[in-house]
Amino acid sequence: MSDVYLQALISGLMIGGVYALVAVGLTLIFGVMDIINFAHGEFLMFGMYGAFFASALFGIDPYLSAVMALPLFFAIGWAVQGVLIRPVVGKSHAIQILLTLGLSLLMQALAQFLFSADFQSLKVDYGSATFDLSGARVSYTRLAAFAISMGMCAALWVFLQRTDTGKALRACAEEHEGAQAVGIDIARMYKIAFGLGIACVAIAGIVMTPFFYVAPVVGPKFTLVAFVIVVLGGLGNIPGAVAGALIVGVVESVGALVMPSPSLKDLAVYVLFILVLLFRPQGLFGGKGA
């Protein structure tokens, strides 16, 4: 394998790890609530802005921000579910899509109003440090983003498998009425699921800030990529989402090599998406397996 491809493979896996955390948040929300959140990427964007301002104004390290974001964005997700999403749970998909689309529009414009449309970037001392991995250059910040995201995914998986709350969430994902019948507080589970999903995507945004620009428009790309991954991995399937994310990360970075222009890399991802939707709508790894 030549060096450029090795490099592409490694950077693809690195960014794929972050995509995994974004997609796991989306698939958790979908799995438990059967809601497709078109505003997903906007929460990522707000996470990034939070880390940016914490750093620019108070000198807080983004990784410390990531830790603080967990309770903060969980609470935000909890509140958004309670106020905005709750009324459309169980309604038609069109209503749900339009509502979250409205939320996405609102959040983007709000970010533009509050933070301006300018692209910002968070600067840390160690931002450009790299190390050598059998011929490929890997930056520490990307490796950290990968490791933290993967760790979060694993933690979430353990949480869902081992804890009572996690088991209750999985029960909701499998059978709403059944879960209710055995005394699970569905409304609370929905808030937890949305809170966790939002916390995941916000943290994914924050750990990218050392190497990714911040702007009001960053969200939609991540929303779409998360959909690609979730469809690829099977709706509601968490391990599937992680696998799908790594595939998408690699397709994207290898796509940047083989496409006539590196910025066409997303084209490969979207074409893959449409093909999966058409030919294997249950995903490569089956649906709701988690």
Binding site: L84, P87, L99, L105, L106, Q108, A109, Q112, F113, P216
Partner: peptide
């Protein structure tokens, strides 16, 4: 800065709110 219109986007904020209000 905000009072002077911030970074713009107020019209779209209203659109987003309208869409959500109508949907709900």
């Amino acid at each position: 800065y905000l009072a002077a219109g911030g970074g713009g986007g107020l019209a779209i904020i209203l659109y987003g709110c309208l869409l959500m209000v109508v949907v709900l």
